Computed example of a mutant assay.
Amino acid sequence: MKTFYATVFALILFTSCNNGKDQRIIPGSNGNINDLLVVVDNLLWEDSVGETIRDVVAAPVPALNQEEPLFSLSQMPPMVFDGFATKSRTILKIEKGGPAGMVIKNDVYARPQTVVVVSGKTDQEIKEQLESNGDKIIAAFKKEELKENQRRIKISLMDDAALEKALGVKLKFQTAYRIAKQDKDFFWIRKEIPTGTMDIMIYEVPLSTIEKGDSTIVDIVRMRDSIGKVHIPGPVEGSYMITEEAYTPFLFETKLDGKPTYETKGLWDVKNAFMSGPFVNYAIKDTANNRYVVIEGYVFSPSVEKRDNIFELEAIIKSIQIQ
């Protein structure tokens, strides 16, 4: 009988090993949103290689009313990169001595995780790799952080039935947010934070509202200013949200929910009042329903860093599904 059980156990063990020979049991990753661990020799970090790293991944976030880096960096030399440190969700490794190159790896030490390895035989080669691949490196880390932000949002979801009924839109946002205003096809969603508020607006406009070409940004500014005048009042009579005139917004073309989308980032202001902050606006072309679905996130939080607030709003917005 003992021989029988030993044989069965051996068969199970053998089968398990074969079925899982390409699988690894790795721990969960950790880290705050937009924190980036940089694994690089101390001498390189303190020299021109470190300057290039900071220029690439700690460049200022565009369209914020105070300077904040894309990522908050912490540095660690390779000799102590072990244990808990390897569980960081996003890691940039600099390896000197090998052929010049840049590789993006996933779930190397933990899951989920994005590890970017930049290598070169000389300092100059490493800097060239960082500079030439900067956009790809940033995009890889941002993709990972967006997924993590959306994962956290899903833990406590608000019921979006009202949005779906009125606009045919589904959106994943936390119960910490509330619908502050609903007026037919306009929704104003708000979250109170210790230093102010985080807000989302959702509405629809006819396709003729925004024309493709030189007038696109003008059309978008005119649209959001008219919405602000009607729906977003300021603290004193006659005040309302507008686009800050002294700051030209950034305009990009992207896709949300598989649909062509104008992405606009800039600063908002309040006419006749001293209030301002950053916003990100997405005008999604919904040809099937002859409209643009417009969804915008903005933050009011005076004298406080707002990078992570805007990033959370972007994570919510990018969960949108148009029915």
Rank of each mutant, 00 (worst) to 15 (best):
V115I: 04
T243A: 07
K181R: 10
E68V: 00
Q66G: 03
E312T: 08
V299A: 03
N289T: 10
Y262P: 04
G28M: 01
S48L: 08
A283Q: 02
R151K: 15
G266E: 11
V270M: 14
K93C: 09
L70R: 07
L171A: 02
I242S: 07
Q113K: 09
L157V: 13
L207V: 11
R190H: 01
R152D: 11
Y5T: 08
E244F: 10
K154Y: 00
G83R: 13
Y203E: 13
P249F: 00
N18I: 15
K154I: 00
S208K: 03
M79S: 15
G213L: 04
V205H: 04
I179Y: 08
K170C: 02
R224N: 06
D107E: 15
N19H: 05
R24Q: 13
N18R: 08
V8I: 15
V294R: 10
E314T: 00
K184G: 04
M241H: 06
V8F: 13
P112I: 00
I220C: 06
I193T: 11
F81T: 03
P235W: 04
I202M: 15
V236F: 06
R151T: 10
S119E: 08
Q113H: 06
L92F: 09
K318L: 01
S16Q: 10
G213M: 03
N32V: 10
L256T: 08
K165P: 01
A140H: 05
W268I: 06
K318G: 00
I104R: 11
A6S: 13
Q174D: 14
G28S: 14
Y5V: 11
T122H: 12
D159P: 06
E237Y: 05
P233Q: 04
S319E: 02
V40S: 09
E164G: 14
I153A: 05
A58W: 09
E263C: 09
A246W: 08
P99E: 11
I91H: 03
N272Y: 11
L146K: 10
M102R: 09
T209R: 15
V117I: 12
A10E: 00
I26Y: 07
T261I: 01
C17P: 00
G258Q: 03
E204N: 15
